[in-house]
């Protein structure tokens, strides 16, 4: 099913209505303040927001929910489609898969959700203030892990498949509708991609790249962490909202059941031991740990990036701490 398939928007909307009979579909909808994934019904189809920058919640939330009973529940066997996933969130799956699908201890809950979910990637035709994927060698369009991609441009829809799952879904859609097709990435798509990429590069000119960020964090002076962490209230929003932060805690429930609940190194006591030792007791150490984890520890161990440049942690910070400003300051 290689190639790009062009459909009328109404034809696509009709096909989507059919898909809703078989799949649970999540798609970005415009809310009061932001655009985020919602579980949609037929009535929502015309309101789906296409090619918007990242939704509020990161993709990880679908695979490692905030809270899940990992002994009793039967997870995610409902076939699910997630639409409108930006390239940065898809790139985060590099790390998530390494964590949760590792050969020795595969997490069956994660695995089953991954298996039963079709990922529909979306090019970003707009960018948010803090988006910086291009600084880390990524692009504002999906490049891996997506099964299908959907572009809505100039009143029509371009579909392309990128996996067996995607090809299967796509051929089902194309069976009953009329379409045009192209082998190469259509020019109109290429054009928007170039434009968005240039825009991001221009905006983030001052930002160090990944390796430079790593070096800067490793060679940093203690005073920077001290001053930047001053307004941190240890709320953990930066980690909760981050597509690559995966830390969790197992909570016991009767019947030898366990609830896996998202946790974060930013919460006090994360590393406290019974003897009272707590390497991350001090706010500045805790704050710095997140940067060390993202720019040094995870990439070194997993050969995968632990920051995909989505910018969510900057948007989410109550203390108005700007990760990128900090990195710029470190590389000055």
């Amino acid at each position: 099913m290689a190639g790009y398939y062009k459909l009328d928007k109404e034809v696509w909307d009709g096909a989507l209505a059919g898909i809703l009979n078989t799949y649970r579909v999540f798609a970005p909808l415009k809310g009061v303040k932001a655009t985020d994934y919602e579980c949609i019904g037929e009535a929502h189809i015309p309101d789906i927001v296409y090619n918007h920058p990242k939704p509020v919640i990161p993709l990880k939330t679908f695979f490692i929910p905030i809270k899940e009973n990992v002994v009793a529940d039967t997870a995610g066997i409902h076939p699910t489609i997630i639409m409108g996933i930006p390239g940065c969130d898809l790139a985060a799956l590099d790390l998530l898969d390494k964590f949760f699908l590792d050969e020795d201890y595969p997490d069956t809950y994660y695995a089953s959700r991954r298996k039963h979910t079709i990922l529909v990637g979306a090019d970003c035709h707009l960018t948010d203030t803090h988006c910086h994927c291009t600084s880390y060698g990524l692009n504002p369009y999906p490049e891996k892990h997506h099964d299908l991609s959907v572009h809505v441009l100039n009143g029509h829809v371009w579909l392309s498949s990128h996996s067996e799952k995607g090809a299967h879904l796509l051929s089902g859609i194309l069976d009953s509708v009329s379409f045009e097709s192209m082998d190469e990435v259509p020019l109109e798509i290429q054009h928007v991609r170039q434009q968005q990429k240039r825009e991001l590069e221009k905006r983030n000119k001052r930002l160090p790249n990944y390796q430079e960020s790593t070096d800067a964090v490793v060679n940093s002076e203690a005073s920077v962490w001290h001053s930047y962490s001053r307004t941190c209230v240890s709320c953990g929003a930066c980690a909760t909202i981050c597509p690559t932060c995966t830390c969790f805690l197992l909570i016991d429930r009767p019947g030898f059941e366990k609830v896996r609940q998202l946790d974060a190194c930013q919460y006090p006591g994360f590393e406290r031991t019974a003897g009272g030792e707590d390497p991350l007791k001090r706010l500045d150490n805790r704050f710095k740990n997140r940067y060390l984890c993202k720019y040094l520890y995870r990439p070194e161990k997993y050969e995968a990036m632990a920051c995909t440049g989505c910018g969510r942690c900057i948007d989410a910070c109550i203390g108005k701490i700007d990760k990128n400003e900090l990195l710029v300051e470190l590389t000055k």
Partner: peptide
Amino acid sequence: KNMSCGLGKCGH
């Protein structure tokens, strides 16, 4: 160290 999962996943 503080531990939760024992599996190299939880980060504690």
